[in-house]
Every structure is written in C-alpha cells, then in structure tokens.
C-alpha cells in the first residue's frame, strides 16, 4: 500500500514538474489578488488628510488606525488580505487537484490503474498527497512574495507559529481535495465538473473571513461563514502570522479539524465506492 501510494504520488509530482508553465500560471491569480485588492484598497491612505493642520492630521490618522485595528486586527489591510489569500490559494489548489481526475478518467488512465492490484484507497490517497505537496510548495513561494511586497509578520513570530499556520492550510486542503476528488470520480464530463467548481469556489471564498472580517458581513452571510472551514483556517493563520486576536482559538482548531476529517472520510468513502461500482 505504501509503495503504491508513493509511486503514484511521485508520478503526480513528476507530471507537475514537467509542466513548468503551470507553475507560473498558478501563481498569477493570487498575485493579482494581492496586488489589486491588497495594495489598491489601501484604507489608511484613503483617509490620509492632505490639507489639514498638522495637529488634526495626526489625530485623524490615529483615529483611522484605531478603526482599522478594530476591524481587521491590524492597520495594514495588505497583511490582512495576504494571510487570508494563503488559505484561499490552498483551497483553490486543492479543488483543482481533485478536478484533474476527470481528465485521467477520460484519458483511460484511471481505468488502467483499476486493472492493477493497487488498493483503491491508495489511488485516492495519492491524489491527496500529491496535491498537498504542491500546495506546500506554492504557499512557501507565495508567502515569500507577500513578504517582499510588504507583509508584516507579528513581532516575535516563532517557527511553531509558521508550522501551525501550515497545518491549518493543510487541513483545509485535505478536506476539499477529498470532496472534489469524490465529485470528480462521479462526473464524466469536464464541463459539468468546471460548472460545479465555479458554483462552489467563489461563494466559499467570499462567505469566509479570508477577505473581510465576519462582523462586517450581513448577519445571514455570517451564519453561512460559520460553517465554512476557510473561516476558521483564516482566523488561525492570521492569529499565528500577524497576531490578530481570535475569539476562541482552541474552538477554531476543533471545528476546523472536525470539518476536515469529516470531508476526508466522506470523500474517501464516496471515491472508493465510485471506483468499485460500474
């Protein structure tokens, strides 16, 4: 079982490495988000007074900073958004990791795998592992780029903080790659698959605290966001990287863990079922 999972995971990664183009293309979307929203939506500069007397000017910027701190937990919206984008990017990559199974089905590769003694769970797990390795690599690149663009880590950040943030992102990714692999095992048509991806992707991103704090949202959206693992992962990542306070840190971990494990188990069960049926 271990040898099979390892072999198939290496295959995924070799394929990924041989497509150098996708590496850059995959990073374009998050970079646009960071540049466009993170840098353009600069709330602090929006309220920078230009023709006030100096004593009012400093008073006003103190007030603006106070408001931003209340809202985002940091005076730097770019840092707020970038930490959320780390989670969203992990989420997007995990969705596409599951989705490319539809192509492997169409090309007959999956069928060939199913005719070998490879355990069905191994086929599913190699998909999950391959996607996770890719995500960890991209996340590292992304945080380095964000740092270059002015991302501010919290003072006294430790290696443990970074590892915990990474684990939160991995948990989100495990949950979604499992679910989307399960969907892909049951969908034969590429267009239908992408319709499903689009249907789920953007709403899940917006109905979370990745881009804006929950308390800024209408109450019905807040209710939806409370069931979204991206919300909890974003809160945990922010808490660890930039020091934003979280109302209940331990509870956030528990909820994230429960949702991810549940999605993983459901995804694996549905996937294996789909492989055995026909």
């Amino acid at each position: 079982m271990i040898q099979e999972v390892y072999t198939l995971t290496i295959r995924e990664l070799k394929k990924w490495l041989s497509r150098r183009g996708t590496f850059i293309v995959s990073l374009i979307t998050p970079l646009f988000w960071l540049g466009l929203f993170g840098k353009s939506l600069n709330f602090a500069s929006m309220f920078t007074p230009t023709n006030l007397p100096p004593q009012y000017s400093s008073l006003l910027s103190q007030y603006v900073d106070q408001q931003l701190l209340n809202l985002f937990g940091t005076t730097n919206y770019f840092t707020y958004l970038a930490s959320g984008m780390l989670v969203v990017f992990g989420f997007f990559q995990s969705v596409f990791g599951g989705t490319n199974l539809v192509f492997e089905k169409r090309l007959g590769y999956l069928n060939r795998l199913l005719m070998t003694p490879t355990p069905r769970s191994g086929i599913f797990l190699s998909k999950v592992f391959g996607t996770l390795v890719r995500i960890l690599f991209y996340e590292t690149v992304l945080i380095l780029i964000a740092y270059g663009l002015g991302f501010k880590f919290k003072p006294g950040i430790s290696a443990l903080n970074i590892i915990l943030a990474g684990i939160a992102i991995i948990l989100v990714a495990i949950g979604f790659v499992s679910i989307f692999a399960a969907i892909a095992f049951n969908v034969d048509n590429v267009e239908i698959m992408f319709a499903i991806v689009n249907l789920i992707n953007l709403p899940l991103m917006f109905a979370s605290s990745a881009l804006f704090p929950l308390k800024q949202m209408p109450s019905w959206l807040q209710e939806i966001a409370k069931f979204n693992p991206i919300t909890y992962a974003a809160d945990i990542v922010r808490h660890n990287l930039i020091g934003t306070p979280v109302s209940n840190y331990i509870l956030s971990w528990i909820i994230l863990l429960v949702i991810s494990v549940a999605l993983f188990i459901i995804g694996m069960f549905v996937s294996i079922n789909a492989m055995e049926r026909s």
Partner: peptide, 8 residues
C-alpha cells in the same frame, strides 16, 4: 485507449 502519460 492510449493510457500512458505523455508528459513522462
């Protein structure tokens, strides 16, 4: 079907 990975 031709199932081999053409990227490998």
């Amino acid at each position: 079907d031709l199932t081999a990975d053409d990227e490998l």
